[in-house]
């Protein structure tokens, strides 16, 4: 079985990246850097955990030939794609809203947007 060899690895990678994101969420000083941390890492981590599920689905499909495993794999892929698009867009929306509501990046060396708005 491919699954038993690969899945723990994929899950571990996903969890490690998710965990990094959480550490970043706690450690970073302001909204933008936190967004950096959690948007990227959670999306990436979720892709990896979902990859484990897809591997599982493929494995069982080969073993049993039942249609439900195709469905599992495809639905997972759809979920991940939806997640990627919505996460990125949501992060952008939050960042924009934060900047407009007057939260300026902490320890920023340069802020072109502030200049552009005036």
């Amino acid at each position: 079985m491919i699954f038993e060899a690969v899945a723990p690895l994929l899950l571990a990678i996903g969890l490690i990246f998710n965990g990094m994101g959480m550490v970043g969420l706690l450690r970073f000083p302001d909204v933008y850097t936190r967004l950096h941390a959690c948007t990227k890492t959670t999306t990436f981590g979720t892709i990896f955990t979902s990859l484990a599920v897809i591997v599982y689905a493929v494995d069982w499909f080969i073993a049993s030939g039942e249609g439900q495993y195709i469905m599992l794999g495809l639905h997972t892929v759809i979920a991940v794609f939806a997640l990627a698009v919505t996460n990125a867009t949501g992060a952008h929306a939050i960042a924009r809203a934060a900047h407009r509501s007057g939260v300026h990046p902490a320890r920023a060396v340069v802020d072109h947007l502030k200049g552009a708005k005036q």
Binding site: G14, N18, G21, M22, L25, V31, R34, L35, C38, T39, T42, T43, G45, T46, T49, S50, A79, L83, N87, G90, A91, I94
Partner: peptide, 12 residues
């Protein structure tokens, strides 16, 4: 941001 993160994690 935290809510967004939680959403992603709940999906996973």
């Amino acid at each position: 941001v935290a809510l967004d993160t939680i959403n992603t994690l709940i999906v996973a």
